[in-house]
Computed example of a mutant assay.
Amino acid sequence: MDLNVIWDYFIEHLKEEDGIEEAQVKWSAGIPFIYIRSKKSKDDIEYCIKKWSAKAMRGKRLHSDTIFFREEESLYVYRHRFFVPLEKMFCCGNLCVDCVRLKQ
């Protein structure tokens, strides 16, 4: 699974949202930050981020995490990442207590 495709889909659709003038992702020390310039409220921006990240992840085993970082006038910065959940996805045959076969 290529996360670049998911990031591209997410950012392109975020840019097209009404009220969002600019959206881009910048990587700093391996951590992705979303820079959004908008006249919308912080709650509306966070709703848009959740909506488009959910649509970008649809059909894939991914999760997203968004944390507000800072705000300057009409520029909002969020730490946002897509990640694979930390859970077993197959049986390894070692009779583990948390085996996927034992889940209901």
Rank of each mutant, 00 (worst) to 15 (best):
M1Q: 09
M1P: 00
M1F: 06
L3V: 05
V5Q: 03
V5S: 13
I6E: 01
I6Q: 01
W7Q: 01
D8T: 09
Y9G: 01
F10V: 09
F10R: 05
I11H: 11
E12P: 00
E12M: 08
H13I: 06
L14G: 04
L14A: 06
L14H: 03
L14E: 03
K15A: 04
E17L: 00
E17Q: 03
E17R: 14
E17G: 06
D18Q: 09
D18N: 00
G19N: 06
G19K: 06
I20S: 01
E21I: 15
E22Y: 12
E22P: 00
E22S: 11
A23D: 06
A23S: 05
Q24E: 14
V25M: 14
K26S: 10
K26C: 01
W27L: 13
W27C: 07
S28A: 07
A29N: 12
G30D: 14
G30E: 01
G30H: 08
G30F: 07
I31G: 00
I31S: 03
I31V: 12
P32N: 11
P32V: 02
P32S: 13
F33I: 02
I34W: 08
Y35H: 01
Y35V: 02
I36L: 04
R37S: 04
R37C: 02
R37F: 01
S38A: 05
K39W: 00
K40Y: 05
K40W: 03
K40G: 07
S41D: 02
S41Y: 03
S41K: 10
K42D: 11
K42N: 09
I45K: 07
I45V: 14
I45C: 11
E46I: 08
I49H: 03
K50N: 14
K51N: 06
K51E: 09
W52K: 03
W52I: 00
W52P: 09
W52T: 02
S53N: 02
A54S: 04
K55P: 01
K55Q: 04
K55L: 13
M57H: 10
M57V: 06
M57F: 06
K60Q: 08
K60R: 01
R61S: 05
R61G: 01
R61W: 04
H63A: 15
H63R: 12
S64L: 06
D65T: 05
D65W: 02
D65G: 14
T66P: 00
I67C: 13
I67W: 03
F69A: 08
R70A: 10
E71K: 15
E72V: 15
E72T: 14
E73H: 07
L75V: 14
L75T: 13
L75F: 09
L75K: 05
Y76M: 15
V77P: 08
H80L: 12
R81C: 07
R81S: 12
R81L: 15
F82A: 06
F82M: 02
F83I: 05
V84T: 13
V84E: 13
P85H: 15
L86C: 05
E87D: 13
E87K: 15
K88I: 07
F90D: 09
C91M: 11
C91Q: 10
N94I: 13
L95N: 03
C96K: 02
C96L: 10
C96M: 07
C96A: 07
V97N: 10
V97P: 00
D98L: 01
D98A: 05
D98N: 15
D98S: 15
V100C: 08
R101E: 04
Q104A: 10
